[in-house]
């Protein structure tokens, strides 16, 4: 017989002193005042990161802005198989394939555009890629521009962005 584990939740707000509100109110106010007073005396104890100056620590698992990887000789790894474009749930990738003459494969991307305004950073493109050509390991989490055109990442921008982690750390990210 399976014995279900029963946990009885004690119902709050029933007893007379709780329905009186005031005692509980003062208890709550004591707690909040403790926080206020501690922070007022020494504001280095605030639980905040002073963001633009102090950046958060990004782990290799973090899905940041995309980049395209290259072989050791600098040629693009992407073979324009359209796996990422097909997989993309938000249709933010658009690839134009061209003929490849360096002997590595038959195709290569002539255009490779990622519209970051469309992208939902799900990482499906990275998972779909058979060549490990697209990665989201740049560690860039803040994409701010004044116009819509400059958030469309072209082939040259994707290739120029370096990864933020070593190959070893990236492999260990455990996906």
């Amino acid at each position: 017989m399976m014995s279900a584990k029963i946990k009885t939740i004690e119902r709050q707000g029933v007893s007379y002193d709780q329905r009186l509100f005031l005692i509980e109110v003062f208890k709550g106010m004591r707690v909040t005042f403790g926080h206020f007073f501690r922070n007022l005396l020494d504001n280095s104890k605030l639980y905040v990161r002073h963001y633009p100056e102090v950046k958060p620590e990004i782990t290799p698992r973090w899905r940041g802005r995309h980049r395209l990887t290259t072989h050791e000789d600098g040629t693009v790894k992407c073979v324009a198989c359209f796996m990422c474009q097909t997989n993309c749930p938000s249709h933010c990738i658009s690839i134009t394939a061209g003929e490849r003459n360096d002997g590595r494969s038959e195709k290569l991307p002539v255009r490779f555009d990622i519209d970051l305004l469309e992208c939902i950073y799900c990482g499906y493109c990275v998972e779909a890629c058979p060549m490990d050509a697209i990665r989201m390991d740049t560690g860039i989490f803040s994409v701010v521009t004044a116009d819509r055109q400059s958030v469309v990442m072209g082939l040259d921008k994707l290739l120029a962005t370096p990864g933020a982690f070593t190959e070893e750390d990236y492999k260990k990210r455990g996906l």
Partner: peptide
């Protein structure tokens, strides 16, 4: 409010 909530 910030200090009550441990913010700046």
């Amino acid at each position: 409010a910030a200090f009550f909530q441990d913010r700046a």
